[in-house]
Design a binder for these strands. Sequence first.
DNA 1: CAGTGGTCTAGACCACGCT
DNA 2: GCGTGGTCTAGACCACTGC
Lengths: 267, 267
Amino acid sequence: MNSTASTLNTQNTSTSTQGAGVANSPPGTSPTFSPLYQQIKTLITQSLQSGEWKPGELIPSEMELAARFKVSQGTVRKAIDELSSENVVVRRQGKGTFVATHHEARSQFRFLRLVPDEGVQRYPENKIIEVKKMRAPAEVARLLDIKTGDSVVFLRRVQSFSGVPTILDELWLPGAIFKGLTAERLNEYKGPMYGLFESEFGTHMIRASEEIRAVCADEFVAQLLNVSVGVPLLNVERISFTYGDRPVELRRGLYLTSAHHYRNELS
Amino acid sequence: MNSTASTLNTQNTSTSTQGAGVANSPPGTSPTFSPLYQQIKTLITQSLQSGEWKPGELIPSEMELAARFKVSQGTVRKAIDELSSENVVVRRQGKGTFVATHHEARSQFRFLRLVPDEGVQRYPENKIIEVKKMRAPAEVARLLDIKTGDSVVFLRRVQSFSGVPTILDELWLPGAIFKGLTAERLNEYKGPMYGLFESEFGTHMIRASEEIRAVCADEFVAQLLNVSVGVPLLNVERISFTYGDRPVELRRGLYLTSAHHYRNELS
DNA sequence: CAGTGGTCTAGACCACGCT
DNA sequence: GCGTGGTCTAGACCACTGC
């Protein structure tokens, strides 16, 4: 709509017909410049963050964006290419470019790397054990980039594959975003919680970071997962991020790996 | 050198001046076509596989390749872009494009995801426990895509961080490629084994696939890692692939995660 | 058929590394 | 100063989708 283009670093001062000319710093002026397509990428990300285009929706065509930002289609293309490779956006030939959403078969298992040793991957059943509001302990606050004592929602659940309890999850969510999250709403929701987070709380996760360790089941855990005390489990600590790399979920999962394994591709 | 271009699918028959025209299948002829840049990518990969350019070496410039393949620089660029994002090749502005190698700081930890809970990551010390030739068991043969009973090299080692045994590795390597691998050569080699594999056996790994489980240390393992029986460990089973997605290494690692964790980025 | 993303080309200029 | 990869443009044609 408005001239978003005015924010660009396009220092196309003197030289020649058309062409790049982005990164030439005028003597003695502002410090850093970045390629045009990076700036476009940032602008698009900001529009996503501000909710101008919501998950699942169609964003303007490359030509439209090129016009809006006053750059060539190729430059917009390169920006979108990167967003696409980061799974922020999905391109569909002949249709357009869509904001990535967790409400899709493609995304069902994006963050769930536990796959069965045999048979096909299917989504587990959910059982909510506990939901409560609490004040963030120092460690949780640090990881979520909020203040100690700030309100957080704590959540515990067990996930089962074909009736076999396999995952015990504990989550901490910033109260500022997730207030109003109840066991009821969680129980009536099917599929990945990230779908609910997106629809009900307007928070879409774009990436996550995990730390994995091996631990043994204590009494409490053993009971919930219906295994013996001492059984080895995968301890997966995850921090999930939304647009702008803001952490918005802390999750600790305990995975039973007697019939499943954590799959990872190194490249 | 020779007209490698003759192998291209360029079906630039009739229409107009220049331009795409790759994926139009002439009525009733060969089945599948792929974009030009994909074909270029395949040709480059074949040259890598054949050893025309070795790890660490400079490959021809984009202009040269464009001339060789009779396509535009942009098309070569897109092919190289993908190879670069797959870590097959490394671009250096002002210098050229180089074949990726494990002999670099950048690549030291590419496949080793175990990082210390505190402090900086440093490369562990190696102790070779055992090296022997054997006949491939059915399971090993299947995973390495060779025949049961084929010769394989089996290798066991312990890796320590600051003197603390942390990783017990068992490896199976195809004898056809790795014959001549001895404990001696392994012991006198510093840094990741992949560096040695590359220099001494001409085999460069481009990607790997891992399956992770939690297990408990048995008596044998406990002794080697200097821990108690029953201590929980990460069991990491890895298959590594070289050019053309050929599996060339099977590795089972047991990771002690009391002072380290396995780090993974989900995106 | 029109509109979208996907491929390809040709040519310009830039930042970088070397000599 | 020259050669390299990196950015940007303009314009062509293609394949796919849906009206």
